[in-house]
Structures are given as structure tokens and as C-alpha cells.
Amino acid sequence: MPINNISGCIGCGTCVSTCPTDVIRLNKDGKAEIKYPEDCQICHLCRMYCPTDAITITPEKTIPVIVSWG
């Protein structure tokens, strides 16, 4: 999981618009939800913009990563 956990979300929606790759959406409860984790670029903008610091992020990617050499 790139974005590991969202807890303490107040539903302001800042992370939704802040995410450059549109990973987060508000669910039917009006809470931020990691909807497209495979598109997360692990840039932490959502975490830094969150007014309640609700987002925890880990450095792992959900899908295998293609690099130039390995």
C-alpha cells in the first residue's frame, strides 16, 4: 500500500484535489478513501496538505515496478 491508512478524516476533500494522480476519492460516507492505489506516485502531497494529518504513507508500491536496470 502506498497510502497505508486514512484515519481522523473530516471529509474536507483537500487530498482528493491535491493528489496529482487522482488516487483518492470521497466514499459514500464522505470520507477520503484510497480508490486507485496502483496510481499513487508516493509523493506525500496529500499527507502534507491534510488539515488533520490523517494520512499515513508507506514507500511500497502495490504493483511491480519497472526500472531501467535492476
Binding site: 481522523g8 473530516i10 471529509g11 474536507c12 464522505g30 502534507m48 496538505y49 488539515p51 488533520t52 494529518d53
Partner: peptide
């Protein structure tokens, strides 16, 4: 809630507070 922002990078604590109290969700 917003106090730790004084000690780390991110949105300014005062901006976080304003955003917090102007969010009109039920909670």
C-alpha cells in the same frame, strides 16, 4: 490536532485550523 504542524513540513497550523473549522461535514 493542528499543533504538530508547528514542528513539521506541510500546511501551516493556522491554515489547517481554518480549513478544519470551515469544513461543513456532519462530524
Amino acid at each position: 490536532i493542528i499543533a504538530p504542524r508547528f514542528f513539521e513540513a506541510g500546511i501551516l497550523p493556522q491554515d489547517a485550523f481554518i480549513e478544519l473549522i470551515t469544513t461543513s461535514t456532519q462530524g
